[in-house]
């Protein structure tokens, strides 16, 4: 009797998730094979085969490589640099915050702050009160030093976005890595002390391997969340100048809301999902391999 009823617990959740995520995703894949222009209903919707994909991928001559490739490259640069910065700085911050100095909880709380701030708010705050060349701290400090502040948002858009992404996600890495550090048993610390290992060895050769699992989890979750972030890009550089600070999700957004090309946007979205899943998969395999090595 009971055996039949257990799936009833599962069904509502599966239904809601399927209707809101799986079915629309399948539709996206179907749309990606259609020629469908929202702003020209008179043209109707026709089957277009793989032409939408070829529009992005086909290289006719090497003087004129489709924009897709540069956007793809930017996405990699954005994500990988952010993840590296987050891991390194996150680890160093965690080592620092692992000390029992007076008021350490306040310090931890302050470092945690940026993670809980909505990306659109942190974007506009950085843009207006810090990065602005006339009214922001950056501009004012540079001018008082006799330097000419360049407009970072137009000249170094990717670097700015990497900086802001990192500022937001380092706390998340600290959250997880610090939990790992605090889980290191006291007798390990004690035996290190007896061995007389110096700080550098203690930190990088003993503690780092012990929290590698936490680090990997942080990188994995970070990848999943960072790769889909567009709010920050929209409010800071709006993808510009040109498409220099687009990432793939932002390109999808622009294609549908400015281009009204449902089919093309569908193709781009499908490719974005495939690329995301492949990179998560690769990372997961690396983690599993490393884990097997340690065990």
């Amino acid at each position: 009797m009971k055996k039949q009823k257990d799936w009833l617990f599962l069904l509502p959740a599966i239904l809601v998730v399927a209707v809101m995520t799986q079915i629309p995703f399948i539709l996206t894949i179907i749309y990606s094979t259609l020629k469908w222009n929202l702003s020209r209903p008179d043209l109707g919707i026709t089957f277009n085969g793989l032409k939408n994909y070829l529009y992005y991928l086909k290289i006719d001559d090497f003087q004129n490589i489709p924009e897709f490739y540069s956007i793809f490259w930017q996405t990699i640069v954005l994500t990988v640099s952010t993840l590296i910065i987050c891991s390194v700085v996150g680890f160093l911050f965690s080592i620092l915050l692992d000390h029992a100095v007076p008021g350490i909880n306040i310090a931890r709380t302050l470092i945690m702050g940026p993670f809980f701030v909505m990306s659109t708010a942190s974007g506009v705050i950085w843009k207006t009160t810090i990065l602005n060349t006339t009214f922001g701290w950056y501009g004012v400090i540079f001018k008082s030093l006799g330097l000419k502040p360049i407009d970072l948002l137009s000249y170094r858009p990717l670097a700015v976005i990497i900086l802001l992404f990192s500022w937001q996600w380092i706390p998340f890495f600290v959250l997880i890595i610090l939990a790992g550090l605090q889980g290191i048993p006291q007798d390990v610390e004690d035996s290190v002390k007896v061995d007389g290992a110096n700080w550098f060895r203690k930190t990088f050769e003993i503690k780092l391997p012990m929290i590698s699992e936490h680090m990997m989890v942080a990188v994995m979750l970070g990848l999943i969340f960072i790769v889909k972030e567009i709010g920050l890009i929209l409010v800071t550089t709006a993808g510009g100048p040109g498409t220099r600070s687009y990432n793939l999700p932002y390109a999808v957004y622009m294609e549908i809301f400015n281009g009204s090309q449902v089919g093309r946007a569908g193709a781009l979205a499908t490719m974005t999902v495939i690329i995301t899943l492949i990179s998560v998969n690769i990372l997961y395999r690396i983690i599993r391999k490393r884990k097997a090595m340690y065990e």
């Binding site: 809101m20 995703f25 539709l27 979205a269 999902v273 998560v280």
Partner: peptide, 17 residues
């Protein structure tokens, strides 16, 4: 299956929605 849906970025569904 639930875990893999976490990986799905919102752009995957935004067009039909």
């Amino acid at each position: 299956w639930f875990i893999t849906t976490i990986l799905l970025p919102p752009v995957a569904v935004i067009i039909p929605l």
